[in-house]
C-alpha cells in the first residue's frame, strides 16, 4: 500500500466517463510522479472537472482504472493522503471560519494546528466571521484552508484562483509554492494560462476528454511548433512572403510583417537570400496562450491536419483595416 516515492502518485489507465451519448473523458492515460506540480489545462467542457471528480472518488469511471498511492481513489482519500479543493465545494453555513477549519482538521488523521493552517491560507484575519458572510475570494481561500488542514502528500485543486483578485492570487501561489517545496505533489486545473506557465513544471493539455499534450511549459510551447517573427519591410511582396519556408501564418500591417513559422532560421534566410533587407527583426517563441490555442484548435479541426496559411492584411496604416483571409 505505501508509496515508496518512486511509483506514480496517481495513474489513469485508459479512463473514460460517459454521460448518455456524451464522452466527457475519453481514454485518458497519465501518471503523476511524486513532487511534481502539474497543471491540467483545457477549455470549458474539456473534461477537467470530470477527471478530477473521478480522481477524488466523487464519480466512477465508465471504464478504465484510476490508482492513487497504489490503491483505489476512495481508500486513498479516506486515508487522508489527499487534500482537495473543488470548484463546486460548498461550505457549512452558520459556523465561523475557525469552527469550520477546526472541524475539518479534527476529521483528519494527521491534523495541522488550526492557527497555522489559517495563517497559511491567509484567512486568519477573518477567522471569527461567519462562513456565510464571506466574499467570493474569501470563500475560495477557506476552501483552500480545508484542503491543507491536515498533513497530505497530494494536493488537488480545481480552478483554485477563480474569484480571487490579482493580489490574492499572487499570495495564493506564494503559499502554494511553500506547500510544494515540502515535497508534495500538486495537480491543479486552471483556465489561466500564465498560472500554468509560472507555477507548473508539467502541463497536461486536454480537449474533448482526451490528452493532447503532456510536457514542460517549454515543451508545450515547442509542440505548438511555431515561433513568431516580425520585421519591417518597405515594399511588401505578398506572393513572395507566402512562398517562405515553414510559414504558418502571415499578418501584414502597413509595412510591418508578422509571421508564425515552424522554422524561423530558414524563413529568415529565405528573406535575406531574396535580396530583401528588413529592419527591426524580432524572433520570439510563442507564448503558452498561442501554443494552447494552436494545440486545441488543431484538435478541433480534427482531421484537416495542416490547415492553409492564414493571412491577415491590414490595409490602413492605423491598422484598423478589414481582415481578409487569403489562401
Amino acid at each position: 500500500m505505501s508509496n515508496s516515492g518512486t511509483g506514480p502518485v496517481v495513474s489513469f489507465e485508459n479512463v473514460s466517463k460517459q454521460y448518455g451519448g456524451l464522452k466527457a473523458v475519453d481514454g485518458l492515460n497519465l501518471d503523476l510522479r511524486p513532487g511534481e506540480t502539474v497543471a491540467l489545462l483545457g477549455p470549458n467542457g474539456a473534461g477537467k472537472s470530470t477527471s478530477l471528480d473521478m480522481l477524488l472518488a466523487l464519480k466512477k469511471p465508465s471504464s478504465g482504472r484510476i490508482r492513487m498511492f497504489g490503491s483505489d481513489p476512495y481508500h486513498a482519500i479516506k486515508s487522508g493522503r489527499v487534500g482537495a479543493m473543488l470548484q463546486s465545494g460548498g461550505l457549512m453555513p452558520e459556523v465561523t471560519v475557525r469552527e469550520l477549519v477546526s472541524l475539518v482538521a479534527s476529521l483528519h488523521p494527521r491534523p495541522l494546528p488550526v492557527e497555522t493552517t489559517m495563517k497559511q491560507a491567509g484567512i486568519d484575519k477573518f477567522a471569527d466571521q461567519r462562513v456565510d458572510k464571506l466574499s467570493g475570494g474569501q470563500t475560495q481561500r477557506v476552501r483552500f484552508a480545508l484542503a491543507i488542514a491536515g498533513e497530505c502528500e497530494l494536493i488537488v485543486l480545481d480552478e483554485p484562483t477563480t474569484a480571487m483578485d490579482v493580489e490574492t492570487r499572487r499570495l495564493f501561489w506564494a503559499n502554494m509554492k511553500a506547500e510544494v517545496a515540502e515535497g508534495r505533489t500538486l495537480l491543479f486545473a486552471t483556465h489561466y494560462l500564465e498560472e500554468a506557465d509560472q507555477a507548473a513544471d508539467r502541463i497536461l493539455v486536454i480537449n474533448k476528454g482526451r490528452l493532447l499534450a503532456d510536457g514542460t511549459p517549454a515543451e508545450i510551447k515547442e509542440r505548438a511548433g511555431a515561433k513568431r517573427m516580425s520585421f519591417r519591410l518597405e515594399r511588401v511582396d505578398e506572393p513572395f512572403l507566402l512562398s517562405l519556408p515553414g510559414l504558418e501564418s502571415l499578418e501584414i500591417r502597413h509595412d510591418v510583417v508578422q509571421i508564425q513559422t515552424r522554422d524561423s532560421d530558414a524563413t529568415l534566410y529565405a528573406v535575406l537570400d531574396a535580396g530583401y533587407r528588413p529592419s527591426e527583426i524580432e524572433v520570439s517563441s510563442l507564448g503558452l496562450e498561442q501554443a494552447f490555442i494552436a494545440i486545441t484548435s488543431e484538435d478541433d479541426r480534427a482531421g484537416g491536419a495542416s490547415g492553409p496559411v492564414q493571412v491577415t492584411r491590414h490595409a490602413s496604416p492605423a491598422g484598423a483595416g478589414k481582415e481578409m483571409s487569403g489562401k
Binding site: 472518488a57 479516506k78 473543488l86 460548498g90 488523521p109 480545508l146 484542503a147
Partner: peptide, 17 residues
C-alpha cells in the same frame, strides 16, 4: 440546500465515511 451548495461533496473529500 447543502447538496446543491456542494457541502456534501466537500465532506466526501474528508476522511469521513
Amino acid at each position: 440546500q447543502e447538496r446543491k451548495d456542494g457541502w456534501i461533496r466537500q465532506l466526501r473529500l474528508t476522511c469521513l465515511p
